[in-house]
């Protein structure tokens, strides 16, 4: 375990002609979680997208377990749910399993939906669910076996969730940390109780 899970050195990144980061360093070890905080527009989402490889205009180095970042070793939950409203929750999750090339039994899908409190909603098209329930479907990905990757990047995961939902998701996050994963997330809500949680402010100094 000599490598940090995530190691960002000297990141410089701009968006729309505005410099968001300069000389930004961040290190995240296994079983560590970090909450990114900062005002709107500080670049929290851009940072997550940089790490995920969806914002290539940066300078500096971002390494995942000592290697260049590759999509199959991280899990990204963004503002957009990654869930198709026309398909059922189960179909959506099955597609997420297929994307990762997962070959095990399909029963894990209903197990994951159970975990996020959506038991019995398997076959309902997602657009008929409430906003909070849709959020839960999106976050049910965290309970799939394909979520057992070194790094989670969660962008505002708690939006639209009720207290029970928040509890469920924090539980999933704690499990991942116990499994030696690392989590980098943003939220404007009070952070849940997690072991090894750190906080990093960005954009506040300016």
């Amino acid at each position: 375990m000599s490598h940090a899970v995530l190691d960002i050195v000297g990141l410089r990144c701009e968006r729309d002609d505005r410099e968001l980061f300069a000389d930004f360093d961040l290190r995240l070890a296994a079983a560590e979680a970090m909450q990114l905080r900062g005002p709107n527009g500080a670049g929290k989402t851009t940072l997550l997208r940089c790490i995920a490889g969806m914002h290539p205009e940066y300078e500096g180095s971002i390494r995942l377990l000592g290697a260049p970042v590759s999509g199959e070793r991280l899990l990204f939950v963004g503002h957009r749910p990654g869930i198709s409203g026309l398909l059922s929750a189960a179909d959506n999750l099955r597609w997420h399993l297929d994307l990762a090339g997962w070959r095990g039994a399909g029963t894990v899908v209903s197990a994951a939906l159970d975990r996020v409190g959506l038991c019995g909603y398997d076959e309902v098209p997602c657009q008929q669910l409430s906003a909070g329930q849709q959020r839960r479907v999106a976050l049910a990905r965290l309970a799939l076996p394909t979520a057992e990757v070194p790094l989670w990047l969660l962008d505002e995961p708690f939006t639209a969730l009720d207290d029970a939902g928040l509890e469920l998701i924090s539980g999933l996050m704690a499990e991942r940390l116990a499994g030696d994963g690392a989590i980098l997330f943003t939220t404007h809500q009070p952070a849940p109780e997690l072991p090894g949680l750190g906080t990093r402010w960005i954009g506040a100094a300016a």
């Binding site: 999509g71 749910p81 869930i83 198709s84 090339g101």
Partner: peptide, 22 residues
Amino acid sequence: RRDRDDGTLEQMVLRAQPLYLP
């Protein structure tokens, strides 16, 4: 377009190895 709007496109681009197949 719809895949892009609901974020499934970014999941596909991010996760699928290789992207050619999907």
